[in-house]
Nucleic acid binder design. Structure first.
Lengths: 216, 216
DNA sequence: CTCGGTTTGTGAACGTTTTCACATGTTTCC
DNA sequence: GGAAACATGTGAAAACGTTCACAAACCGAG
């Protein structure tokens, strides 16, 4: 594989393109220009073209990009043209919300396992999934072919859970706990820090921060 | 005001510093070096020093930074050394989770109003807050002195809600709907796109993407 | 089949952010 | 009180990401 260096920003923008293309397809557009695509996600046309050009030539000069086809291409680049099995740890406030979060399913992420350590929850059925005892993650993760773990447990126990999850061979983790988790180099870890954006708003307001286009 | 140009990344890292400093303070550390602070949030010491230097000289050579004091300074820079009143729109899966999300409260964001358009929810008490009819936002927002709106309604109606919210004078919006909202230039808008990070993981896995330190 | 209008793909220029490297200052220890 | 260790603050250099600008390619009309 070519292993060119793709920037994080580009990948994040690919998510936006994918979203916009899904809408365009639903709206029955056959083609779309970089200009229109840019407008829909508050980016610049040059940016759109440059991003896509890292992965190939998908457009036609004078015409634009074929919507349906480009959408498939982007899905394939992002790796979401398939099903990813996800295990969710911590069926609390955030965790329960994520189980029903339609957007995940729509993009091929299927939550197939729920884990908790609360005896009152274990064994009960939450939106069609039986909550398992986190201590049984060993065989259950393997049985279900889980590849991604979503961590929605309290910050105080997140590291322990992650250590276990890593021990059981999971290589991709999405963390909602407000803590910096340690994982080996070969494990992909992303953090979802919901207060960070609120803090950004707060900063902007108290500083009259003249905002550029948000960096995606 | 000096109006120096502070980058978005720097502000996002300030959130991380704040978090780390809170932990350090709880652990009774008097001072902390840029090295230690960097280690705790997977950054580099130079980055930490540079970021802080944009706002002043908070450290002592040979010693490091005074934990408690720096934490206050950072809070003050971020504008979270005060209470922000927040209204939440959409008491669905995500919305309900956010009401109980401790981290918001801990950083000075208090959800004081809940709005929905579902007659079955309106009037009911959700974690101590009565859910209001979204059509009454006019007087309720003003009465409660709300300054920040959190949007957790379905993507299909998000733009309508936001238009109203903006009409009623709100200048800061945190959006959880997976859609690109249009707001006037003087309104701060940030998006929380939870599937984006999952897509990043997916991309990384299918591409064996050699990951740098995630960009905050 | 040519012309005018479009729009891509992409090196090169530009701007921004990160990292480096070191002078400066503080503390600790003998 | 001097030396060694430590750690900040910051210009300058390097790396990185974005925008520019234009040649190349395609479309549709006449």
């Amino acid at each position: 594989m070519a292993k060119k260096k793709i920037s994080e920003s580009t990948i994040r923008r690919l998510s936006l393109y994918y979203r916009a293309l899904s809408v365009l397809e639903k709206e029955n557009h056959q083609t779309v220009s970089s200009k229109e695509l840019a407008k829909r996600e508050k980016l610049t046309p040059a940016q759109v073209r440059k991003d896509l050009s890292f992965f190939g030539s998908f457009g036609t000069r004078g015409l634009g990009y074929p919507v349906a086809e480009l959408r498939n291409q982007v899905a394939s680049i992002l790796g979401i043209n398939r099903l990813w099995k996800v295990a969710l740890f911590g069926v609390g406030n955030i965790g329960s919300a994520l189980v029903s979060y339609k957007e995940f399913a729509r993009q091929g992420f299927r939550i197939v396992k729920l884990f908790d350590n609360d005896q009152r929850k274990i064994g009960s059925n939450h939106k069609g999934i039986i909550i398992s005892d986190v201590r049984n993650m060993n065989k259950e993760i393997a049985e279900a072919n889980v590849e991604i773990a979503v961590i929605a447990v309290p910050a105080t126990v997140a590291q322990y859970i992650v250590d276990d999850v890593v021990d059981h061979g999971i290589k991709a983790i999405l963390n909602f706990a407000p803590i910096n988790l340690k994982v080996p180099d070969d494990v992909y870890l992303r953090n979802e820090n919901m207060s960070m954006e609120l803090e950004y708003l707060s900063f902007a307001m108290v500083n009259n921060h003249t905002q550029k286009r948000p960096k995606v």
